[in-house]
């Protein structure tokens, strides 16, 4: 049973270098601007490009005191479907909870893979080809920003407008307006997918 019913908890499964930590921090900063309380931190293992990583995110209306890793998420985001073979992504994910995954597979294929690797998940699966959207709009296969749009659509944890504003605030100075615009277009496209 969930220890923190009043805290919205997320686990990101990704590979080192895919930008999961940055994605979690963007959502965290956005929620902060909306007056909520947040925590965002990676599972502190050795950082190796390509190795499986876990990043945790908490959002709450009240201050968050716990510092344990998220053990019972409300939502899981998977940035790389090859992780289905090695990571127990559906652990503690219940019927009413959701799995968002960057993949070209459909919902049934994803569920079949989870079952095939010994997992069990009866909740909703939201597949999105975030790498594909990123490739076609931004020109590089970086799923981490695109999937933010899907996350907002599914969870409504933050507003799309404030997330986009925060994204612009962080990235425009770093990568310039043109690339930022393309990223924002990709986020909005993901938000509009069914």
């Amino acid at each position: 049973m969930k220890y923190h019913k009043d805290i919205f908890e997320v686990i990101f499964f990704a590979r080192g270098g895919q930008g999961a930590k940055t994605a979690a921090e963007i959502i965290g900063q956005t929620a902060t601007l909306e007056g909520k309380f947040v925590q965002a931190f990676p599972s502190f293992g050795p950082e190796r490009s390509g190795a499986p990583t876990k990043t945790y995110l908490r959002i709450s209306d009240a201050p968050i005191r716990t510092h344990e890793p998220v053990v019972d998420p409300d939502v899981v985001l998977v940035l790389d479907d090859t992780l289905l073979g090695s990571q127990d992504v559906s652990n503690n994910l219940d019927k009413k909870e959701a799995l968002i995954i960057n993949t070209q597979l459909d919902e049934h294929e994803v569920r079949a893979q989870i079952v095939e690797h010994g997992g069990k998940f009866e909740g909703r699966i939201y597949p999105i080809d975030a790498s594909g959207i990123s490739l076609s709009i931004i020109g590089t296969p970086r799923p981490s920003t695109v999937i933010l749009g899907k996350f907002v659509q599914v969870t409504e944890a933050v507003n799309l407008e404030s997330l986009v504003a925060e994204f612009r605030h962080i990235f425009e100075a770093k990568v310039g307006k043109e690339i930022t615009d393309k990223n924002v277009a990709a986020i909005e496209k993901a938000y509009d997918t069914i």
Binding site: V38, Q39, F41, P63
Partner: peptide, 10 residues
């Protein structure tokens, strides 16, 4: 170290 130094909090 890490638990506090590398975790984003309000």
């Amino acid at each position: 170290g890490f638990n506090t130094s590398h975790s984003v909090e309000n």
